[in-house]
Design a protein around this nucleic acid. Structure first.
Length: 149
DNA sequence: ATGCATGAGCC
DNA sequence: GCTCATGCATA
């Protein structure tokens, strides 16, 4: 009866894991479909993506026992990865939000551009107060000046 | 979330 | 042919 070398085959463990899995997935703001497709990024040999259906069935324990056993380590691996990178984002937002932080290329309309060039001809290196004043006059954000240098 | 269909592996 | 894992389509 008590055969099988599966250390992890206890239905109670599975139940507990499935529950934790779902809660933590939701806490990460990730859908079942997201999990399924993200599995492919784990690059576990012989493991591709799974469907939303399968993730759902895993969480609700409606897969066969063997199927659950087989899927558990995979989903566990995903969960650990997901939580790791989530922590990294919280710890070092500046490294990760590069795409979000980067200012878009500034484009300056022709009239403003001519004005700025005129100001620059008069005074190539104005103080930040001057810059602010110029920005005010031209109704531009003050950091636009440095974009024009 | 789930009924139904499909394809892979098995004997 | 049967079982099982999985996906699609849908309410």
């Amino acid at each position: 009866m008590g055969c099988m070398s599966d250390v992890d085959a206890d239905p109670r463990d599975l139940e507990a894991f499935a529950e934790r899995f779902k809660q933590r997935r939701i806490k990460l703001g990730v859908t079942q479909a997201d999990v399924g497709s993200a599995l492919a990024n784990l690059k576990i040999p012989g493991v591709g993506s799974l469907s939303q259906s399968t993730i759902c069935r895993f969480e609700s324990l409606t897969l066969s026992h063997n199927n659950m056993i087989a899927l558990k380590p995979i989903l566990q691996a995903w969960l650990e990865e997901a939580e790791k990178s989530h922590r990294e984002k919280l710890a070092k937002p500046e490294l990760f939000s590069g795409a979000e932080k980067k200012r878009k290329r500034t484009s300056i309309a022709a009239p403003e551009k001519r004005s700025l060039e005129a100001y620059f001809a008069l005074q190539p290196r104005p103080s930040s107060e001057k810059i602010a004043a110029i920005a005010e006059k031209l109704d531009l954000k003050k950091n636009v000046y440095s974009a024009g240098i």
